[in-house]
Every structure is written in C-alpha cells, then in structure tokens.
C-alpha cells in the first residue's frame, strides 16, 4: 500500500484573522464583564428551554 504524508486542511491558511481591536476586546476586563453577563443570559435561555 502506498502511504502518503499528511495533507493539512488548506482552509485554515485563508481563514480571517482577528484584528488588533478584537484581540484587545477579548482581554479587556470591562468589555469581557459585559460579555460574561451576555453569555450568562444566553445560557439561562438554553437551560430554561431544556427544562420542561
């Protein structure tokens, strides 16, 4: 059997990279606190929908 070397997913090479602003937002405590509340609300929605 002819065995080949790995072929990596080429889509990663052209995927969009985050901007410097996005990277800063991911670490900004005030911004992330607001997102924390947002994720909480989203999870409450998910949890409530699953508990009938």
């Amino acid at each position: 059997m002819h065995v080949l070397k790995p072929q990596f997913d080429p889509a990663i090479d052209i995927a969009p990279l985050p901007t410097a602003k996005t990277l800063r937002q991911r670490r900004n405590l005030a911004y992330q606190f607001v997102r924390f509340l947002g994720i909480n609300l989203k999870m409450i929605r998910v949890i409530v929908s699953g508990h009938h």
Binding site: Q25, R26, Q32, F36, G38, K42, S49
Partner: peptide, 12 residues
C-alpha cells in the same frame, strides 16, 4: 440563532 453562539475571550 438567539440561543446559538460562538465567541472567544475571558468571559467564557
């Protein structure tokens, strides 16, 4: 779409 999301950051 209101309950489906993906995000990256400290909050998660």
């Amino acid at each position: 779409l209101r309950g489906t999301s993906g995000e990256i950051g400290l909050a998660g």
